[in-house]
Design a protein around this nucleic acid. Structure first.
Length: 569
RNA sequence: GUCCCUGUAGCUCAGUGGAAAGAGCGGCCGCCUUCUAAGCGGCGGGUCGGGGGUUCGAAUCCCUCCAGGGACGCCA
């Protein structure tokens, strides 16, 4: 990345940089200048970076560069810090720059500059916190992809919330994003499911039929069979084997339900990719397997075809093609990733899988590597599973056990917004406990409402201002000098940094925490600073603009989480 | 047995190299003649699983042990 340069002592503004980046570059430039002037001994400088001090007294940003440099430069960190602080380039955003032991440079943003950001935020509107970090690179995010053999359960809601928010953030950061759902319609489970549907279908006609040993005992299969009976009559009744058409119809109906469940929590996929298309509508599967053979990554033994993964650093080989000639799920996944990374050529592919697929990660990565895909283009996020708590009962509710809690059930009870917020709040790495009873309560202490309420409160103020004909197109923002006002601006300026970091580390769970923090700051401002104060019209206008900006940032935060921003509550 | 994730306040969890560890919930005490009390303020609460190491500095990195979850199929 090209660094901004010093021009006549005035620092050139970096285009599209976050405040944080700019400050880091300023400190770096100051250190360079101090070195050139011989005030700091020559030593290789660490990459530009600044920290966010935990305590407000330490300023808005802090650099520990002097501490990092002191050993290599053989100099006192305080002396280095002082040299840097004296050499800091001028910049409108810079306020007080101070030195603190054991060797920090603490930087405060200038009040006037801060207040001025209110205009910038309002001007950016719904695009606030957008950037061109991704420069249009194409990223595909595949998530949920639950087998179309049953309804989505609560855990699937977690991957949906994480995947969709990540997609929203990446889009904000300038990536070309596609959301994809892989429909597993080609494997053994799909067959068993279709067999189960056929058995239920026969039973509806009074025929003797048992669902397969490994079949799907859930009630929903009976409903499905009834629908098929109503729509297609008895045309599948005499089949000796489960007809392909019945399987297709059954899976299509399940997918329709899954799609509806996803829509209910605000998730819309760009592509529903059918596993069967790798075999039927294209030769992708064949091409991918041939490619592995060409690369010498395949061995044949015991009548089956294996990926020679043990030669590639894995603990064992894995079967690609069974001895009966049928491809395994693994082979499908290899072909699927060939399709994504080579055929469709996404710059980056992110898969979100549940922890029960964790053992699958390294072999897929190994296979993708064997296909010749560059390292780092495939990222697999493993999300730990969701435990459900009901009263004192704690456990995993599975499709088989029949005590399944469906995603739809929770969404209907507590609402899509609350679901998404709760699912998003925990990092994917952490096992999550979902208290069904608590979530179902519409508790007033619910953090979801706390955030949305802040937005609604602002909307109320702006509505009143409009009703009273108060205009605030123009305002002297320098009147914003109250600590609560400037703290609010500071908090709003954090969102672009957050979007940037989530786009890089793919950890959207910081979003709800930020939103909560922002809402707290707004509520504090609301308590301390009356907006519609008729005795001071100039201050009133400035605060109205500040409130309008806060509304923009709250709405954007909610939008990135896939939640609604209510105008009143 | 091997591999992956986790262990932070009573509970659910943030914080992954910086300055005195945070939030929400729960508990206790206060605040509505003023823009929405789904709000605000205050109090109490921690051997950051144990031990060792690296570092100017460790909840954060390394080693080891303990505990919980997950995975080790010609299922997906």
């Amino acid at each position: 990345m090209a660094r901004p340069s010093l021009k006549g002592g005035l620092f050139a503004l970096g285009v599209g940089m976050s405040v944080r980046q700019e400050i880091a570059e300023l400190v770096y430039a100051a250190a360079k200048a101090a070195q050139s002037a011989g005030e700091i001994p020559p030593a290789v400088l660490p990459e530009p970076s600044v920290e966010r001090p935990a305590r407000p007294e330490h300023g808005d940003y802090a650099s520990s560069l002097p501490l990092r440099l002191s050993r290599a430069a053989r100099a006192n960190p305080i002396a280095i810090a002082e040299a840097i602080s004296k050499r800091m380039p001028r910049h409108a955003a810079l306020g007080e720059v101070s030195v603190a032991p054991p060797g920090f440079v603490n930087i405060r943003l200038a009040d006037a500059w801060l207040a001025d950001q209110v205009n910038a935020i309002i001007a950016a509107g719904a695009d606030y916190a957008s950037s061109d970090l991704g420069r249009g690179r194409r990223v595909q995010i595949e998530f949920v992809s639950a087998n179309p053999t049953g309804p989505l359960h609560v855990g699937n809601g977690r991957w949906a919330s994480i995947g969709d928010s990540l997609a929203r953030v990446l889009a904000a950061a300038g990536y070309g994003v596609e959301r994809e759902y892989l429909v597993n319609d080609a494997g053994t489970q799909a067959l068993i499911f279709a067999d189960t549907v056929l058995a239920r279908y026969r039973q509806l006609f009074g025929h003797e039929a048992e669902i397969p040993a490994n079949g799907y005992p859930g009630e929903y299969v009976i409903d499905l069979a009834r629908e098929i009976k109503d729509e297609h009559g008895d045309r599948f009744l005499d089949a000796t084997e489960t007809p392909a058409e019945l399987k297709r119809i059954s899976i299509e109906k399940m997918i329709a339900r899954i799609r509806a469940d996803m829509t209910a929590i605000g998730v819309n996929y760009d592509v529903w990719f059918y596993e069967s298309s790798l075999y039927e509508e294209s030769d992708t599967y064949k091409v991918a397997m041939d490619r592995l053979r060409q690369k010498g990554a395949v061995v044949e033994k015991e009548g089956a075809v294996w990926l020679a993964s043990s030669a590639l650093g894995e603990d064992k080989d894995n079967v690609l093609i069974r001895s009966n000639g049928a491809p395994t799920y693994f082979a499908s996944d290899v072909a699927y990733h060939y399709d994504k990374l080579i055929k469709r050529g996404f710059d980056q592919v992110i898969d979100i899988w549940g922890a029960d697929h964790q053992g699958h990660v390294s072999r897929v990565k190994t296979a993708v590597q064997a296909l010749g895909v560059e390292d780092g283009r495939l990222e697999i996020i493993i999300g730990q599973l969701v435990s459900l708590r009901r009263g004192d009962e704690l456990g995993r509710f599975s499709k088989r056990a029949g005590n399944l809690v469906t995603l739809r059930e929770i969404v209907d009870d507590i609402g899509a917004d609350a679901c998404r917020f709760f699912f998003l709040q925990r990092s994917a790495d952490a096992q999550m406990e979902f208290d069904v009873d608590l979530a179902k309560q519409q508790s007033s202490e619910n953090p979801v409402y706390y955030v949305q309420y802040a937005h609604a409160r602002i909307a109320g103020i702006l509505t009143q201002a409009a009703e009273r004909g108060i205009s605030f197109e123009q305002a002297d923002l320098n009147l914003l000098r109250h600590e609560a006002e400037l703290t609010l601006v500071r908090k709003m300026l954090l969102l672009p940094e957050l979007v940037e970091s989530i786009a890089e580390n793919h950890e959207p769970h910081h979003l709800p925490h930020y939103a909560l923090d922002l809402a707290t700051t707004f509520h504090d401002f609301y308590e301390k600073c009356r907006v519609l104060n008729d005795e001071e019209p100039a201050l009133r206008a400035a605060r109205l603009r500040l409130a309008a900006a806060a509304k923009v940032v709250l709405a954007r935060s909610l939008q990135l989480m896939g939640m609604t921003a209510p105008e009143r509550m």
